[in-house]
Simulated assay, not measured.
Amino acid sequence: MKVVHVDYRINEKINVNQFYDLLVNSTLGERRPVDDVECLAGMLLNSNLTVSAWVEGKLVGLARSMTDFNYACYLSDLAVNRIYQNRGIGKQLQILTQAQLNKRCKLILISAPTANGYYDKIGFTNNPRCWVLERDSDISI
């Protein structure tokens, strides 16, 4: 495995094309709306904490979060280009995300089933109390 210098950046501007390329070249592309550019743009625009990884000016990793910085931080996307996986980039993105938060702030995420072992390895604990309401649910109030 070739040693490369990874440049980590906090809240660096990322354009939709860079985000798209990262998603389709990571395992997240199959679970994100990559065919909806407007949605991808909104995902970037409305994130209030990003930690990105760059190699030779190319985006190779991203931790994209929404947070209040004090109590809860939802890590919505943790993506690393397949070529750069297994080099500690994902773990470093998570560490740098935590470094931006108050020490009491919880880092929360929803894992793909195949990634459960990864999050356990980097210190997360499993919490079975997550609930998701899909937007197209037929629910009346």
Rank of each mutant, 00 (worst) to 15 (best):
C73Q: 10
L107G: 11
S140A: 11
L96S: 01
R32C: 07
K58G: 01
L22A: 02
V16R: 00
N86Q: 14
S137I: 15
D138K: 15
L22N: 00
V3C: 13
L107M: 15
W131N: 12
P128T: 11
A63N: 05
Y119Q: 12
V55K: 09
G61Y: 01
N126D: 11
Y118S: 14
R104P: 00
N102I: 07
A79G: 09
V16D: 02
K58M: 06
F124T: 06
V24H: 01
V80K: 08
I122T: 08
K91A: 08
Q98G: 15
Q18Y: 12
V132M: 13
L96K: 04
C105L: 08
L93M: 01
Q92H: 06
S76T: 06
M1S: 12
D35Q: 09
N15S: 11
G90P: 06
I139D: 09
T50I: 10
V6K: 01
L133A: 15
M66V: 15
K91C: 05
A63I: 01
R129Y: 13
L101D: 04
N25H: 08
I110C: 13
S137F: 08
G61Q: 03
Q94G: 09
A63E: 04
V24E: 01
K106L: 10
L62R: 03
Q98C: 14
L62C: 03
I95T: 07
D21S: 07
I10M: 10
M1F: 14
V37M: 03
F124V: 07
L78Y: 05
E12T: 00
N15I: 11
G61L: 03
V4Q: 09
A99L: 11
Y84S: 07
T27G: 12
W54V: 07
G90W: 00
S140D: 12
C105A: 13
Y71M: 14
L107A: 13
L23F: 04
T67F: 04
I14C: 00
Y71T: 15
C73N: 09
S140F: 15
Y118E: 13
I122W: 04
G29Q: 00
M66Y: 13
N15W: 10
N17H: 04
S65I: 10
F19M: 02
K106T: 12
M1H: 13
M43S: 11
L62P: 06
I122H: 13
K106D: 06
L109N: 07
P113H: 10
E56P: 05
I83Y: 14
N127L: 11
N127A: 06
C73W: 08
Y20L: 04
L96V: 08
Y20A: 00
I139G: 03
N17T: 04
S65Y: 05
V132P: 05
R135M: 06
